[in-house]
């Protein structure tokens, strides 16, 4: 494991932000970190990067404790924590040169990371003239300055337009193919599913689930399933009283139902008995469904 948290906990006054969190991030993975607002994602990431001290527990990077070894443990880490902020009165290149001095990396890296993030022609401009999207790219550029083996990105696509988001996605894939491990927190579940190999979900500071995305989807008991039927409204009436159906709605003339896998055949039988013609049954389960079901369960608990 390149990154591990053990029993990681942090409270702010009476509020528990992170509660005994155990994470294992394998080397070379692209690890998605999901959770609703206020679930403790940012606090966890700040503890990983030594910005916040945990009350108990530790973060290990390459088997070195961040809490005990301090800055030494972060020598292979690049990070972008929330929005990217720089010295606005200085140029992008000057800002990066300052960070290069701290990383003790070659100054030639500055041009490389600017090229990589599409900012090479604006490198001499003051940061205050940058749009939010450009600042975010510069944020990713600074994270790459020290040629990191582990890249921690907290909401990296914030403020980016769809094209910028795609560029970041492509960049993450490219870095991953070069062997860089990427730990990424995002609200964009579709994004995460597109680029991540692993995922962890937290709610109220507690780990809900974690593992390889494909394994989690396979293990999931909850399925969002589309039923192509001839009478959608009548179908909704028929199933409205059934307690084993978690959720149902009509979407563009299609009946979408959240249901446990073993209950699908029972629902088909029920609809057929009520003279509903079914032309197709299409399972739609994706990371978003899994996330909503897991977080939903947690909230009910």
């Amino acid at each position: 494991m390149i990154l591990e948290t053990k029993n990681l906990s942090k409270s702010f006054g009476p509020r528990i932000a992170v509660d005994r969190l155990d994470l294992q991030v394998p080397k070379g993975s692209v690890y998605g970190f999901l959770g609703p607002n206020g679930s403790g994602k940012s606090t966890t990431i700040r503890m990983m990067t030594s910005l916040i001290s945990p009350d108990i527990g530790e973060v290990f990077i390459n088997d070195m404790s961040v809490q005990k070894m301090g800055s030494k443990a972060l020598s292979d880490v690049g990070a972008l924590i929330e929005r990217a902020d720089f010295h606005k009165h200085l140029s992008a290149k000057t800002n990066l040169s300052m960070l290069a001095r701290m990383d003790k990396t070659d100054f030639s890296n500055i041009q490389k990371v600017l090229d990589r993030t599409g900012l090479s022609d604006r490198g001499n401009d003051k940061v205050k003239s940058y749009s939010q999207g450009m600042k975010q790219r510069l944020g990713i550029a600074q994270a790459l300055m020290g040629n990191p083996k582990l890249l921690i990105l907290d909401e990296p696509t914030n403020g980016l337009d769809p094209e910028g988001m795609k560029e970041v996605r492509d960049l993450i894939r490219e870095l991953s193919s070069e062997g860089v491990t990427i730990f990424i927190s995002s609200h964009l579940l579709d994004e995460v599913q597109k680029i991540c190999s692993h995922v962890a979900m937290i709610s109220f500071g507690k780990l809900i689930t974690s593992g390889k995305i494909e394994d989690l989807l396979k293990e999931s008991n909850f399925f969002m399933t589309d039923f192509h039927v001839d009478q959608v409204e009548k179908s909704l009436q028929i199933i409205s009283g059934q307690k084993w159906i978690l959720h149902s709605e009509s979407i563009n003339g299609v009946l979408r139902v959240s249901i446990r896998a073993e209950k699908i055949s029972e629902l088909v039988q029920l609809l057929v008995q009520n003279k509903i013609n079914i032309s197709a049954v299409i399972p739609k389960t994706n990371l978003e469904d899994l996330y909503l079901s897991k977080i939903g369960i947690d909230k009910k608990l």
């Binding site: 990217a84 902020d85 600074q142 020290g146």
Partner: peptide, 12 residues
Amino acid sequence: NGIFRLTLIRPV
């Protein structure tokens, strides 16, 4: 200004 989020995560 959020600069510590850039500087305090470095190996210094």
